[in-house]
């Protein structure tokens, strides 16, 4: 089901809906007696790689997390342009398996790009990116103007 979720309309998917979709897939699998995941995977072959992306906000910053396992740091590009954050890169296959028999090839190798419009202005010079356990985390501090500000009310 994970492959299908990637192509669903981006909206907040929470635990309960994940459970329901899981049940639904079981039902559909039983109906056609062929694993739906297999079809979803072959469909992805033609449409490339769209790594899953999350965007979080708190009062001081925006945080973007993208799942790009098995990359080299230097093959990931992060750029900021006119309020849009772009993350792109290329994942290369292992040369040493070129000669081997391939029984299953579900992993995608090649280029990807994701762009997300940021909902608040960010301080471009303070953006940081970290790559750990196959997850790229980009932290974008908001500009001072974009941060919520408390205004004291003076009472005479």
């Amino acid at each position: 089901m994970n492959s299908l979720i990637r192509w669903s309309r981006p909206e907040l998917a929470t635990w309960p809906s994940f459970g329901r979709l899981t049940d639904l897939r079981n039902e559909i699998d039983r109906l056609f007696e062929s694993p739906l995941a297999e079809m979803a995977r072959s469909a992805r072959l033609f449409s490339g790689w769209t790594p899953s992306l999350d965007l979080y906000e708190d009062k001081d910053r925006l945080v973007v997390k993208v799942e790009v396992p098995g990359m080299k740091r230097e093959d990931i590009d992060v750029s900021l342009h006119e309020g849009c954050l772009s993350i792109s890169g290329e994942r290369k296959g292992e040369e040493k398996y070129k000669e081997a028999d391939v029984y299953r090839a579900e992993r995608f190798f090649g280029r990807f790009q994701r762009t997300v419009a940021l909902p608040a202005p960010v301080a471009a010079d303070k953006v940081t990116a970290q790559y750990q356990d196959g997850i790229l985390t980009v932290t974008l501090p908001k500009t001072e103007e974009a941060k919520p500000r408390r205004i004291d009310v003076n009472v005479n």
């Binding site: 994970n2 459970g19 079981n26 995941a37 799942e67 081997a100 028999d101 579900e106 992993r107 196959g134």
Partner: peptide, 25 residues
Amino acid sequence: PGYVTPEVNIYETKDGYVVEAEMPG
């Protein structure tokens, strides 16, 4: 149920098998 099925590549060489599974996080 309740788990994500990781995507895998499986290769066979003369020495054995290699399984690569994607588990970001």
